[in-house]
Structures are given as C-alpha cells and as structure tokens.
C-alpha cells in the first residue's frame, strides 16, 4: 500500500489515499477475524431466533446455559472427569506410539511386522471397536482409556515412523563423514530432525483423542461432558447441551493450539517470530 508523503497533485488523491487506508484497516487480519467471529455468532443468534428448529437455541441462550452449568459447578466437575481418560490415554499413546514409531523407523524387521497393523488402523473406522472394548473391560475407566488409545495411536505411530524414515540423506551422510557412531547419528541427527514431524503427529493424535473420549462418554456410559450432553438432550434442555458441546470444542481447539505453540518454540526456529 502507498503510504509515502508525496504532495497530492490531483484533488482526488487524498480521498483515494483515505479509501485505501480504510481498506487497509478493513482487511487487517485482526479486524477480519473479529468480523468473522461476529458474523458466525450473529448468524447463530439469528437462526436460533427464527427459530431454525425447536432444538436449536440462540447463541445468547447457550451462553446463559453455559453460565448455569459453570455456576453450579457441574461443568468443572465434568471436565475433570472427562480429562482423566483423555490424559491417561493420550500419555500412553504418546509414550508407546513414539517408542514404536522410532523402533520401526530404525529397525526394518520391526517395521515389516508392526507397520501393517497401524496402516490398516489408520484407514479403518476403529470407533467400531468400542463395543468390543466395553464388552471386554466393562464400563469403567479402562475401556475409555483404551478408546482414546486406539483413536490417537495410529497417527502418532505412523507420523513418528515417517519422520524417522525421512531424515534427509545428506544429513545422515554428513554425520557419517564426521565419524558419528550409530547411536550418535540417532541422538544428534535422526531424532532432532524427526522431532517437528513427531510433534505434529502428537497434535493430530490429540485431536483424535478428543473425538475418542467424547465418543466413549456418549457410547459406553455417560460420564463427564458426555453425561451433560446426553442428560440435557434427554430432558430437552438444549441451551445446556449446546453449552457443554461448545465448551469441550473450545477446550480441544485451545489445547491443540497450545501444542502448536510449544512445537514452534521447541523445534521450529524458522517459524519463530
């Protein structure tokens, strides 16, 4: 955009410049983001007021519902309950998944043996295993943790495998030319080079883990956030049901955003401001 201080020679110029400055402000990312959110929330509010459906509360009603469940403490409690299988399952998936991925990346026979399972798991609708898990482990925490694991692990494993396998050939040769031992190559070149992609696997795994934990809470037994959703669905208290859904979605998105920040600050010097 033109911002130099050239003396206007044409009378129309200042207004042109003003218009362009106005345009600058209008397309500023922050402005557009606010506009975008306002538009969608406004649309929600409008659609709720028509109403689109008896089961579609307005945005403001949902906010009131959110205040109610937050005020009586049920939302906080529900989050604690939901986060338990999520965090246990995710930790197990990360440790086991990264471990398996690195092992396969460094050791061809293990890759031959193990990778096909995860390639199929990645493509398959593993959610269909939830009834089996319930059958085997009952309706307690174990089944929910395992649900989280089967959803989150395939992507973590395959990303880690790919990351290790995709270490640039020239970096490996470089390490060898400086007489790196196998373990030095792994520690100094392969793992640092794989870290960013492993971490993005963790991000995708976390998103899948959230899908899994909510699914488990809706399918196995209603607990935590899943309980608020199904209970309010059954008594047709839609604002509260929507409030619970909104809160878990916002939470999941912020959680994954946080992971991305960590990834940038730890592993991606090129993306740091």
């Amino acid at each position: 955009m033109q911002t130099t201080d050239v003396a206007p020679t044409v009378a129309a110029l200042p207004s042109v410049r003003e218009a362009s400055r106005l345009r600058d402000i209008l397309i500023h990312p922050l402005v557009l983001r606010i506009v975008s959110f306002a538009a969608v929330l406004g649309l929600w509010e409008y659609a709720g007021r028509i109403p689109l459906s008896a089961a579609f509360p307005t945005f403001l009603e949902t906010l009131v519902g959110l205040r109610d469940i937050a005020a009586d403490g049920s939302l906080g409690k529900a989050f604690l309950i939901t986060l338990k299988p999520l965090l246990i399952g995710l930790s197990v998936s990360v440790v086991l998944g990264v471990g398996l991925g690195v092992l396969m990346g460094l050791h061809r026979p293990s890759e031959w043996l193990i990778a096909p399972i995860f390639i199929i798991a990645q493509a398959a609708p593993l959610a269909a295993l939830i009834p089996v898990l319930t059958f085997a482990y009952g309706i307690g925490l174990t089944a929910k943790v395992l649900t989280v694991c089967i959803m989150a692990m395939p992507v973590i494993v395959l990303n880690t495998l790919g990351a290790v396998r995709n270490t640039p050939q020239s970096l490996l040769e470089m390490a060898r030319s400086f007489l790196a031992s196998r373990s030095q190559s792994i520690r100094h070149v392969i793992l640092p080079s794989a870290s960013p992609m492993i971490f993005s696997g963790l991000r995708l795994g976390s998103a899948a883990a959230f899908i899994g934990v909510i699914l488990a809470e809706l399918l196995i037994t209603p607990t935590g956030i899943g309980d608020i959703i199904s209970y309010n669905q059954s008594v047709a208290d839609y604002p509260k049901m929507y409030a619970a859904i909104l809160s878990i979605i916002v939470f999941a998105v912020l959680f994954i955003e946080l992971l991305e920040r960590i990834e940038v600050s730890l592993f991606r010097p090129e993306k740091r401001p």
Partner: peptide, 23 residues
C-alpha cells in the same frame, strides 16, 4: 482470513461432540 479460523477449528474439534447436535 474470514474462513480459515473456522476451517481450522472444525479440523481439530472433537466432531463426535457435534453429532448429538445434528441428531
């Protein structure tokens, strides 16, 4: 700039929580 935040949101949101809404 208007749409990207929403696309990213739906990409990482736990969509299983939205199925009850559709239901």
């Amino acid at each position: 700039r208007l749409l990207l935040p929403w696309v990213n949101l739906f990409l990482s949101a736990p969509l299983s929580a939205l199925v009850p809404v559709i239901m």
